[in-house]
Simulated scan of single mutants.
Amino acid sequence: MENIEKKILSFKEAVLFMDVSKSLLYKLTSEGRINFFKPNNGKVYFRKEDLENWMMQNEVKSITSLEESIIDKMRTSGRKY
């Protein structure tokens, strides 16, 4: 995708960046599930950062990552198990 360093993306650019269908992006905007801007009630624009935040929600961690997190919490709590 061209201009990958852009901070503001048009609707079409957002669809390409997120690799989703137009209908899904329309649904996300109409349901208020993703931030967007509509200057002068015209075209829809998105902050790239908002799109990235939406894509990175609901992380599913690997077993190894969960184990490391538990071990780290056990170490920092000072409790003996």
Rank of each mutant, 00 (worst) to 15 (best):
K6L: 08
P39G: 05
G32C: 04
K7L: 12
K7C: 09
E31N: 11
I4F: 13
D19S: 13
L28A: 02
L9I: 02
T76I: 13
A14T: 01
N3D: 14
E31I: 05
L25P: 01
Y81K: 14
A14E: 01
A14L: 00
E49S: 11
E67D: 13
M56L: 09
T29Q: 06
S21W: 03
W54A: 02
G32K: 06
I8L: 05
N40T: 07
T29R: 02
D19I: 07
I71R: 13
I34C: 02
R33Q: 12
N41W: 03
G42K: 07
N35V: 10
M56P: 05
K61Y: 08
R79F: 12
I71E: 15
I34Q: 01
N53Y: 10
M18C: 09
I34T: 01
S23C: 09
K48T: 03
D50N: 04
G42M: 04
K27C: 09
E59W: 07
F11V: 02
I34F: 04
A14M: 01
T29L: 05
G78T: 03
L51W: 00
F17H: 01
Y26P: 10
F46E: 00
K43Y: 12
S23N: 13
E52A: 07
Y26G: 08
R75M: 13
D72H: 07
K38F: 05
F17N: 00
N40P: 02
N41T: 04
N3W: 02
R47E: 06
K27W: 07
T29C: 12
M74C: 15
F46N: 00
Q57F: 06
F17P: 01
Y26I: 11
I71D: 15
E68W: 10
V20C: 08
M18V: 05
S77L: 06
E5S: 10
G42T: 03
F36L: 05
E49P: 02
D19K: 13
I70H: 08
N58A: 10
K7M: 14
E67P: 08
V20E: 02
M74R: 14
S30L: 05
S69F: 08
S77E: 04
V15F: 04
K48C: 02
D19G: 11
M74V: 11
S69G: 14
T64L: 11
R75A: 11
S30M: 05
K43W: 08
T29W: 03
Y26K: 14
L9E: 00
I70Q: 11
K6M: 07
Y81V: 14
N53Q: 14
Q57T: 10
L24M: 15
K48H: 05
K80T: 15
I71T: 09
S21D: 03
K48A: 03
F11R: 01
I63W: 10
M55I: 14
A14Q: 00
L24I: 09
P39M: 03
A14C: 04
Y81S: 15
T64S: 15
L28W: 01
R75L: 14
L66H: 11
A14R: 00
